[in-house]
Design a protein around this nucleic acid. Structure first.
Length: 572
DNA sequence: GCCGTTTTCGGCCCGACTGTTTTCAGTCG
């Protein structure tokens, strides 16, 4: 039983307990455990086998024994018991925006509704208003919520949300009176997907900002609009929340709206320990006097903490680390001196070697590794051994032309065949500065088989870097079933680097795997996987993912100079 | 259900907005 399956069960138990009106904090304990297990970065089964379940934050006696039961038997009696008490369809009502546990329980118990469909019919028939406290508006909200559920697009990819945010921010910054405007929420934390977009604006007058916001061309529907808070739905289906605040409260507001919720709850608990109450408006002492924070650093400093980078704010130990003065010095975009994967017209890229080199240089990079596909990946028109030799000569020519202002490195994205061998001969690979190996096929192989191919590629003496290890495509494809611990161990042992592919559809390795890799001493590279000159712009998302995985500059090969890198490449 | 340099019992973040209420409960983040 894998982490996600355990998390799903705890999460479902939380929903059911919520509907049954269990103690709120008990419900939260299940939710927190689900989140923690889901993002653990290593198999919970392994932690269980080592008898260390209780070392996981939020897992105590009871939940540890439940995980134990799941691991031993594949089932959980308490879960069966709960599912037998509340109909599945009633739990499904929680997915409808605006319907929470209290409403779902009443629809079920007072109206006998046990499915979302039945709820919709009842709302259409005007039956919901029979309930005390429900009127026509509530009924319509239920219908709107169900309609939304049916056309829901799910979470947006980081890259898409980023672009939309930039567009909205640039328009709001034009509004008179606006002093600051910034994205917050999961976008600022650089999560791989974004459920809704949070935009924060500092202005003495909210009204004109709200006015402009609700009339943006992207806006499809205004969902709610109050004095300081406005929510809209954009044409792409993404919800955008705007908050307008006084400039002197910017620090507390930005801190609050950046989240995560779990981080904030933990931080507010810490504030209470210090006799302070923290909200988005201020820190308040027991006598209700306010401490205003114009910057986030002020908020953390008032609580006796160094500033915690947004990417770490998931309540995964960052507050404890801050308290103990052992926050990592995270790798930053400016630290990157090079890129480790891009494509040209030599395979499936759109631009030439020279165009790509100039584009990389224009983005402040000192070097980049060209990695066209090898011929084995048929659809890309990849390179044969002979094509590769010709490209090697072309790389030298471009380097001469750029006259020391930039260095192209000769590489390849070589295909790992189904038997774990590479589809180019060793002598061709030996000519290259660095070799990147990829598995594009057989992603549905059983875990053991795929892991074996991967580990065999890692152990191949010619291979320096493994590209996008799991092959996942966010929102489209799960990625291979891979024993990541085995991969990390082999990579650490052979000093083979693993890629963080920065493309917003990949972000592979993902954040929690980066963290585990860093713990095990695995070297990382951040790669744009650019297929055109614009493609280098995605590196920021790779850096965000590395930061979410607690990676420092020392963990990431992109921070090496080209000489240092070539020294690393000559390791045995 | 978890957790502990105040505690092994009694806490567990805080506020906006909505719809229905005459002061608040539910939902959301």
């Amino acid at each position: 039983m894998n982490n996600h399956q355990v998390a799903e069960i705890f999460s479902a138990m939380a929903d059911i307990l919520d509907i049954m009106d269990a103690n709120y904090h008990r419900v939260m304990a299940y939710r927190r455990a689900a989140e923690t297990v889901d993002t653990l970065g290593r198999p919970v089964e392994e932690v269980w086998r080592q008898g260390e379940l209780m070392s996981i934050p939020g897992i105590g006696d009871t939940l540890a024994s439940k995980i134990d039961e799941l691991m031993r038997t594949g089932e959980l009696e308490a879960y069966q018991e709960l599912t037998s008490q509340v109909p599945e369809g009633v739990v499904a009502m929680l997915d409808v925006p605006g319907i929470g546990p209290k409403s779902a329980a009443r629809f079920w118990k007072e109206l006998g509704l046990t499915t979302v469909e039945a709820l919709e019919q009842a709302a259409l028939a005007g039956r919901l208003r029979e309930l005390h406290g429900f009127g026509a508006k509530s009924e319509q909200n239920v219908l709107d919520g169900i309609a939304f559920l049916k056309r829901r697009t799910g979470r947006s990819r980081l890259g898409d949300a980023w672009s939309l945010a930039q567009s909205i921010l640039s328009q709001l910054r034009d509004v008179p009176g606006v002093l600051q405007a910034a994205p917050a929420g999961s976008l600022r934390r650089m999560r791989e997907t974004v459920g809704d977009l949070d935009i924060l604006v500092a202005s003495p007058d909210a009204q004109p900002v709200t006015e402009r916001f609700t009339h943006l061309a992207d806006v499809d529907e205004v969902m709610l609009s109050g004095a300081t808070k406005t929510s809209v739905r954009t044409r792409s289906g993404l919800q955008v929340d705007l908050r307008v605040l006084e400039p002197e409260r910017w620090g507390t507001a930005l801190q609050y709206f950046t989240g995560s919720q779990a981080h904030n709850i933990h931080l507010r608990g810490l504030a209470l320990d210090r006799g302070l109450s923290l909200s988005e408006y201020a820190l308040k002492s027991a006598d209700e006097s306010e401490i205003l924070c114009a910057s986030e650093a002020d908020v953390y400093a008032t609580l006796g903490l160094p500033p915690i980078p947004p990417e770490l704010r998931e309540d995964r130990g960052e507050i404890e680390a801050a308290l103990e003065g052992r926050l990592p010095d995270l790798v930053a975009l400016d630290d990157l001196k090079g890129d480790f994967q891009f494509h040209t017209t030599g395979s499936d890229g759109r631009h030439s070697l020279l165009e790509m080199a100039r584009a990389a240089r224009a983005r402040g990079l000192a070097y980049a590794l060209v990695t066209d596909h090898s011929h084995g990946l048929g659809v890309t028109g990849g390179l044969t051994a002979e094509g590769l030799r010709q490209q090697r000569a072309a790389v030298d020519a471009v380097n001469e032309r750029l006259d020391g202002t930039f260095q192209l490195l000769a590489g390849i994205e070589v295909e790992v065949r189904s038997d774990g061998s590479l589809d180019l001969p060793a002598d061709a690979l030996a000519e290259l500065d660095l070799v990147v190996a990829s598995l594009h096929t057989g992603l549905r192989q059983p875990q053991e088989q795929f892991t074996e191919r991967m580990v065999s590629a890692i152990r191949n003496p010619h291979v320096d870097i493994i590209a996008h290890p799991t092959g996942r495509l966010i929102g489209e494809r799960e990625g291979a079933n891979l024993d990541m611990e085995a991969v990390f161990r082999a990579a650490a042992e052979t000093d083979t680097a693993l890629e963080i592919n920065a493309h917003p559809s990949r972000l592979d390795l993902r954040d929690v795997h980066v963290r585990r890799a860093v713990e095990l001493g695995v070297k990382l590279v951040i790669s744009s996987d650019a297929h055109s000159v614009e493609g280098f712009d995605v590196l920021r998302f790779g850096v965000g993912t590395a930061r979410r995985g607690w990676a420092t500059a020392a963990d990431v090969l992109n921070t090496l100079s080209v000489l240092e890198l070539l020294t690393w490449a000559s390791r045995t």
